[in-house]
Design a binder for these strands. Structure first.
Lengths: 234, 234
DNA sequence: ACGCCAAACTTGACGCCGTTAAGATAACGC
DNA sequence: GCGTTATCTTAACGGCGTCAAGTTTGGCGT
């Protein structure tokens, strides 16, 4: 059995960068974060342990590249979901939340690297841009659901960077639910709940169904709710 | 500089188990999941690399012990918060959600080990009990907030283990927000948002304030909402 | 067509890692 | 006080990430 990812013809691999990324995701999916090693990925790509250094610098560089792809996945799938959901506010927001979960489920390796607190390259500009863009889509859709105006720089600037966003609470609310459910599901926190009739599908249906109803209701209610005392309650 | 945790008097350490756990949490807090090694912890405890084996078996055993403490922290602090919040339904639920975040912030090392998808010991009974108990408190309080009856076995049995819980959607909703926000905050996903006036405190205040208002409103609304089609919507 | 340069990859080595086996030490029950 | 047993050390193994140095090769200028 030869499970190398991207066979090579001669001394040079041809597309080692891509092969390493694919191998890494396979390993991550198979053995989890713990069993993940650079040497193992290199082995699967049919290459020596030191070969990847030229493409990624080091292990952190590889993980950073994968994380960037993870954020790109999120942006892409969320935009696609929005396009399919049409113009109505609530459907759009629910659509991106479901897309978020779908991405996590489809590529748990990438997703975990993007969010999983393995160390990533600190100043990486590609990573930063990809993350801000994905976050920006979520910001934009939350604002649209609230019936608020959306600046043209949502996808390139953080909301806070132009001085305190009025909708930050709603944004964090939506993101927390979405991210919380997604991570718990792929990280096995909900595994005991998957052991019963319906299994994982029931949980996903619950998320796409009742949880989205609750989320939309909460956001709509928040739009009508007075801001009492915006930042001191507990 | 000597930063050993739990100095030893002679050949025997005295309480190596405790010292290792403390050292591990310090290392985890200092260097994150990536820089965490068993040898480093042993070094800080002033002990040879092989010493911990007798107490924990291996690295996974140590992590499992720490994770168990993490769940115990959650149970303890959530119960304390509930006791202080008194009898009113909404306050109690908000109180445990805030306690959840407080535990994550106070001991991010434990919290990350408990939830972070480093591998833990599979069949560990202590870990399982601790996790179910913490989850049970959340289940209990969500049901109370909904005005529903709570079985006496909430803290020892999973809701699903007695055949499909009617309040599962609300439970997952509350847990997703709480867990999502907590993990994003301690894992640095919200770091860019902390870089502005108000910083982390502002986000925490937003969580304890507006987000809790939204959460309670959503749960209350859900209690009144018809169950349309409980498990098939998207 | 040819030579050369830079990119791509290998080899070998280093120090650190987790784990194990065998031996040293000390606490404790009898 | 003595043996038993838990605790800890030492030494070693293979595997890890990374680096320096050497080898191969594609491609470009001429």
């Amino acid at each position: 059995m030869d499970d190398r990812v991207g066979k090579r013809a001669g001394y040079h691999h041809g597309d080692l960068r891509q092969a390493m990324i694919e191998a890494a995701e396979v390993v991550l999916a198979e053995k989890g974060v713990g069993g993940f090693t650079l040497r193992e990925c290199a082995r699967r790509a049919g290459v020596s342990p030191a070969a990847p250094a030229h493409h990624f610098g080091n292990l952190v560089g590889l993980l950073t590249a994968i994380a960037t792809l993870g954020f790109d996945d999120l942006s892409q799938e969320m935009e696609a979901a929005v396009a399919k959901a049409g113009a109505s506010g609530g459907n759009r927001l629910a659509a991106i939340c479901e897309a978020y979960l779908a991405v996590a489920l489809a590529r748990p390796g990438r997703f975990r690297v993007a969010f999983g607190r393995l160390g990533l390259k600190n100043g990486d500009e590609d990573l930063r841009r990809a993350a801000i863009r994905a976050f920006g889509i979520l910001v934009r859709e939350t604002k649209l659901a609230l019936g608020h105006e959306v600046g043209s720089d949502v996808l390139t600037r953080l909301p806070s960077s132009y001085g305190g966003d009025a909708d930050l609470a709603e944004i964090l609310f939506v993101w927390s639910i979405t991210h919380g459910f997604s991570t718990m599901l792929i990280d096995g926190q909900l595994a005991p709940l998957e052991m019963q009739p319906g299994g994982r599908e029931r949980l996903i249906a619950l998320y796409s169904g009742r949880l989205m109803e609750m989320l939309l209701a909460a956001v709509r209610a928040s739009a009508a709710m007075p801001l009492a005392n915006p930042a001191s309650h507990g």
